[in-house]
Amino acid sequence: MKKIFVMLSFVMFFATSFHKSEIQPKQNSTVPLKTLPQLSVTNGEKSSKTNNAINAEEIYASINFESINKLNSEVFNKAFLGFNNLKKAGKLDENAHILSICDFSLSSTHKRLWVIDLNEKKVLFNSLVAHGKNTGEEFAQKFSNTESSYQSSLGFYITETTYNGENGYSLKLLGMDKGFNDNALRRAIVMHGADYVSEDFIKTQNRIGRSWGCPAVPRALAEPIINTIKGKNCFFIYYPDPQYLSSSEWLKNQEEM
């Protein structure tokens, strides 16, 4: 009996002296993900060039003069400069894109009028055009802004409204160069058709006929040309006159204005 008691005591001692170790499960350590910086994607500055800012050389180089008289590039550059300055001054609508150029430095036997669509970079018309009877014979030489001078006037014009008059379907022109062509309306300087502006006239006279100062065009082309350029478009009559070229406010670069 004593022996059994000793054994039970031993077992109890062993049980109370032995402690289980609690093994705590390891907690998963979570490492926060680094937030990647958002990349700001930029395509660079947008080009500042627009249709209106494309320079004259680029447009001129795109125009196809094949099978027609080629417009002098310097004359085009001046016409384009004035066209842009008139537009910036609010004299032309923002969407205006028809530019008509008359180069009176050329013989009247040449097709020296060009009507150009700047958006399409295309010549719509290339035609004969008359100068005033007191401006010269075959070549233009003298210009005036005076009433009853029967001379042509240099410079930039804004095309106005149409009417039917003594010379048929005609287009009023508003002169924009003070002292050079700003009397155009008073002098009734308009575009109209004329029978003396023709190849047949050239064959007999070695020049076309002359007007009283109007930029007259062939009778058959008067209506289509006028309908194309009417309604506040730019018309430029050029001649290498030093006084005009140095005086016209429309031929000054933007920084000079």
Rank of each mutant, 00 (worst) to 15 (best):
P25M: 04
S100Q: 01
A15W: 12
L113R: 12
E58D: 15
L118T: 13
M12C: 15
P32I: 13
V115Q: 08
H110R: 13
T50E: 10
T50W: 06
K111Y: 04
P37R: 14
Q27I: 09
N77R: 12
R112I: 10
E57T: 14
N206Q: 13
E66P: 00
G175D: 03
N28H: 04
K46F: 02
L128Y: 14
G136N: 04
H131C: 07
E255G: 03
H19I: 10
F76R: 02
S29F: 01
N134W: 00
G193L: 09
Y244V: 06
I229F: 01
K70D: 02
A53S: 14
K3I: 07
V31I: 15
V197R: 08
T161Q: 13
S153Q: 01
G44W: 00
K87F: 01
S47L: 09
F5R: 06
R186T: 12
I4R: 07
E94L: 14
I189C: 06
T204Y: 07
Y60W: 12
N55Q: 15
Y239I: 04
C234P: 04
F143G: 06
E160Q: 14
K230V: 04
L174G: 01
K172W: 08
L221M: 15
L99W: 08
I225H: 01
N55M: 10
E94D: 15
V129Y: 06
F14V: 14
K172S: 09
N134Q: 05
M12D: 00
N77H: 06
N51G: 10
K122E: 13
Q24M: 12
N233M: 09
F5H: 11
N183C: 00
A15R: 01
D177L: 01
N95G: 03
V129E: 02
S198G: 00
F156C: 06
T42K: 09
F143L: 11
K121T: 05
F80A: 10
L154Y: 01
I202F: 03
A89F: 00
F5C: 08
H131F: 03
T204H: 08
D200Q: 13
K49M: 13
L71K: 11
P215M: 04
N183M: 00
F156R: 02
L221T: 09
N77I: 06
I225D: 02
D241W: 05
L92H: 05
R187I: 13
N64S: 12
S48H: 01
E166F: 09
I101C: 03
D241R: 07
S62V: 02
F80H: 14
Y157A: 06
V31M: 11
I101Y: 03
P240K: 13
N126H: 07
I116W: 04
Q27C: 00
S247H: 05
